[in-house]
Design a binder for these strands. Structure first.
Lengths: 216, 216
DNA sequence: AGCGCCCAAAAAGTATACTAAAATCTGATC
DNA sequence: GATCAGATTTTAGTATACTTTTTGGGCGCT
């Protein structure tokens, strides 16, 4: 009777939770516990969790699955990938964005701006997700898009942490404003340039906030 | 008593077969059949095959796992990724290569040159693998390396096909010669430039040999 | 109290069995 | 001869039970 398999539904459920930052760093996902909660057997749960692990969203330990613990070095490595891929990605997206995506990004930037005074970090976080997902969905190269999505899922917790920092908060909102402007003007070159600057600024923020220490 | 799990051994076994091109395009990998052959149950085999599918090395169909069937568009998308990542990757590898890797690449280029007259395509193919794996292993950025490896596994069949073409054969050997020269001189800039040209040439070869048609 | 050893609990791994869905085959009907 | 319905087979999906490995804790020893 299930049009989608249990495995697939559980996979999508937990992928969403991870991407929305709903899984704590110390939380341990164990197949038997989840299976009992959902009223299914271990196997579909186990396979869903293993799939998430294979895709880098979780880390399999000998005592349940947890969020991957990134080292300082790994975070810097992801920033190198971002520098290489994201400028090109936004450039190609600029030429493919439709009116709906542009409107969604306008709303997202407005929400993000409002959090500068309200201090609502969770809204800021969600608005940033909306903004990013909107342009990312417009990237025509599917493989490029998936590659970016893969590592973005992994650095979720790092982004979460840096976004709580006030100067970083302002930098991100300003970056989104200018990217949006470039999108509206269909200026792919400006978008690429701004995105590269954006990534470099994010890296600086990270280095300033996490000097030497383990990345979380 | 198995130090490694069945799943892991089967995974590594079939990953190797795929990467060495030992799996035919029409071949269907079915867990029950493999399990019977190996004398184990379905589950470890199933999980190994699913892991390979999650990582892009196989495609799960309703009738067993097969090699992924790439569309023309997908192949072009992978070439875009290669243009973005591989020049940077070789540049950083240039500065990290040790003597052993350099020696391995010298031997590989020598083997590849010999196949220009002998026509031994399989030796040429293996030598190219050795050459590529040698510099790839020296890329310090682990995430970058893994990203490259992921898509290289998928375009295996396309590479196989283009390498049978005589002009392409010559282009590849010449590219390897010049890359090796840059590596020896520790000239990261030259290596990056040559790799970009190499990827562009490979793309041209592909377009010439597979005009419009599905990529198999 | 500190140390190690052994045992029990927890979780991964594997085996087996059953169910569901999809593809292929078969034969009847037009 | 073509086509379609149903049966059969093949394979994926799930459930359950058993085994192995790992970990943490208790217990005795010094």
């Amino acid at each position: 009777m299930p049009r989608k398999s249990h495995r697939r539904r559980i996979y999508e459920d937990y992928l969403g939770r991870i991407q929305r930052g709903e899984i704590g760093r110390q939380e341990r996902l164990v197949d038997t516990a989840i299976a009992a909660e959902l009223g299914v057997s271990r196997m579909p749960v186990r396979e869903a969790l293993m799939q998430l692990a294979h895709e880098g969203y979780l880390e399999g330990t000998t005592r349940g699955f947890t969020l991957p613990s990134l080292t300082h070095e790994q975070v810097l490595e992801f920033f190198e990938l971002r520098r290489l891929l994201e400028p090109r990605a936004v450039a190609t997206a600029t030429q493919a964005l439709d009116a709906g995506s542009l409107a969604a990004m306008r709303d997202a930037v407005r929400d993000a701006e409002s959090t500068l005074s309200s201090g609502d970090i969770m809204l800021f976080f969600r608005a940033s997700e909306v903004f990013r997902n909107a342009w990312l969905a417009a990237v025509p190269n599917r493989e490029l898009r998936q590659t970016i999505q893969r590592y973005l899922g992994q650095v979720q917790s790092v982004r979460m942490a840096t976004m709580r920092d006030r100067p970083t908060h302002e930098i991100i909102v300003e970056g989104q404003r200018q990217l949006l402007d470039a999108f509206h003007r269909r200026d792919a070159v400006a978008a690429a340039d701004r995105m590269l600057r954006f990534v470099l600024q994010a890296e600086e923020s990270y280095l300033r906030l996490a000097p030497e220490s383990a990345a979380r």
